[in-house]
């Protein structure tokens, strides 16, 4: 009975490997040809997994072939706009300057109810939409009319701080030395800083992040511990 187990492990590993090689886009938003690939991969792995009468290679060879076809197609599409529009399709504008383009909707075999449903899903009303675009992946993206857009600091001419990217430096009680170094911090000094703030042992910390402004956000492992923010020595927060 180890045969099905080993076959399953082999096919599962191969599919995981294939999805990993195909990249992150597959998991987030599928293009039409990628949907075909996803369905095929599942079938190709599932059938030899369940049927011991089918040689394992009957699953392995097609999966590798699909992986290579995908790689080839994505490389071609990276360089050719024509290939991209052939395999992925083009975005279709269905509302332009606040006007519904019925011809485009009909061409997409899409009715007004579908459009309204998609708008409702985005919490938008017809009168608030300046542009609505059906993307090749099937999602509807909208651009609101300017009076309906959320107010931004730019609208108010307010200067804001640049966005910062918090880097996790402690996760589940484990110090991530490489992340610390990428933030320009010395692990020993960082631990000393943690001790100064009352976190004696890294193992007692659930999470700690540091951003480019050297602001430390940390949560201890105690039942009543919450996220705390500290300006680190030498950081912008400390100057403030």
């Amino acid at each position: 009975m180890f045969t099905p187990l080993i076959r399953t492990v082999v096919l599962f590993s191969l599919v995981v490997f294939a999805v990993r090689i195909m990249g992150k886009r597959e998991q987030a938003q599928l293009q039409p040809y990628e949907i075909v690939i996803a369905v095929m991969l599942a079938e190709l792995a599932g059938i030899p997994m369940a049927d011991m009468g089918i040689p394992l290679l009957f699953g392995v060879i097609p999966i590798i072939t699909i992986l290579l076809i995908h790689y080839l197609l994505s490389t071609i599409m990276l360089h050719s706009e024509r290939a991209r529009s052939f395999f992925c399709g083009r975005p279709t504008i269905v509302i332009e300057k606040g006007r519904i383009l019925m011809n485009e909707l009909r061409r997409m075999r899409c009715n007004l109810n579908d459009l309204l449903e998609q708008l409702r899903a985005q919490q938008a009303t017809l009168d608030s939409v300046e542009y609505a675009i059906f993307e090749p992946g099937g999602s509807l993206n909208i651009i609101l009319k300017s009076p309906h857009r959320p107010l931004t600091p730019a609208d108010m001419s307010v200067t804001t701080e640049p966005a910062t990217l918090p880097t996790p430096v402690v996760l589940d009680g484990k110090l991530h030395r490489q992340n610390l170094r990428s933030e320009g911090l010395d692990p020993d000094r960082f631990q000393a800083e943690l001790s100064r703030l009352g976190y004696g042992n890294v193992r007692d910390i659930v999470i700690a992040t540091v951003d480019d402004q050297k602001v430390l956000i940390v949560q201890g492992g105690g039942p009543y511990d919450t996220l705390q923010t500290y300006p680190m020595q030498g950081g912008k927060g400390a100057q403030a």
């Binding site: 090689i21 290679l57 392995v60 060879i61 590798i64 072939t65 992986l67 290579l68 790689y71």
Partner: peptide, 17 residues
């Protein structure tokens, strides 16, 4: 690295065929 992995996979496929 990804290109290398894909090339190796292509070589494996050729061998299998």
């Amino acid at each position: 690295a990804k290109t290398i992995v894909v090339l190796v996979t292509a070589a494996v496929l050729l061998f299998l065929l």
